[in-house]
Amino acid sequence: MWDLKEYRYASSPEDAVALLRKGPGRGMFIAGGTDLLLFPPACDFVVDVSRAGIDRLAATPDGDLFLGAAATLHTLTTDPLVTGFAGGAVSHAAAHCGNRPVRSTATLGGNLCNALPSADMAPVLIALDATCYIADVDNQESIPLVDFFTGPRRTVLGDRLLVGVALPAEAGRRVCRSRKLTRSAEDISLVQVAVALGMEGGRLDQVRIALGAVAPVPLRAGLAETALTDLDYHSDCTAAVADAAEIAAGECDPISDHRASAEYRRDMVRVLTGRLIAECLDDLRRGGNGGAA
């Protein structure tokens, strides 16, 4: 049992930060709690941010999508704002995160702030150029999600609160697919890949390849992205796809553990990246988002 001294409820992001800083002792934010209660960390108190008004999903008039940090993964799988963005790629990733009852309470923010290298939501959001919004008691800051993670279980947050992430409207028009490789149907990712492709006059533009579970933090395969940029996607792309997949495999830095070896993970980055690019190209040729599956 988690030996906590106190459980506090925050009514706003600012309140949450203030309650965390008030002490005494070590405090943590809690939202869904599905990670924290699993392996309870040593701390004195928690601040519940599930009532801090940061669970909203919203679209701006110009089509940007805002996902509140306390939105549950189940909400992300079902809400039309999310299922309609970038072919439902974010919903697809959320639907493969944990099991059904876990998704009812587990939150987007929890998945990101827990900062496991295998965080299921990170690659797809990075591939869609997510920006995260971070609240302090008196101001908010925004940074690209790809810069949010600083190491396994470490982020830039300190004692500030992640309030949500925003996805630009332009990213919503990309074709995007993500996939996680697992041992059984429902499992921690051995490897995760998300690919998003934009187009400009018959050529690839805004190419994003994001990788999870294959480095201390989720990352972009920048060289592979460059290799694909400006590709004429109506031509035969087979060799270019294979090259890009190979390059991406060279860009990751996986570990060997009891789940898989580094060698296997690296090769799976190649396999999944290749497959996802090819599938995205098919989607593009068919004239749009073919869905995320």
Partner: peptide, 8 residues
């Protein structure tokens, strides 16, 4: 059970 997988 996160890592010892039995059939779902």
């Amino acid at each position: 059970f996160l890592d010892y997988k039995i059939a779902t």
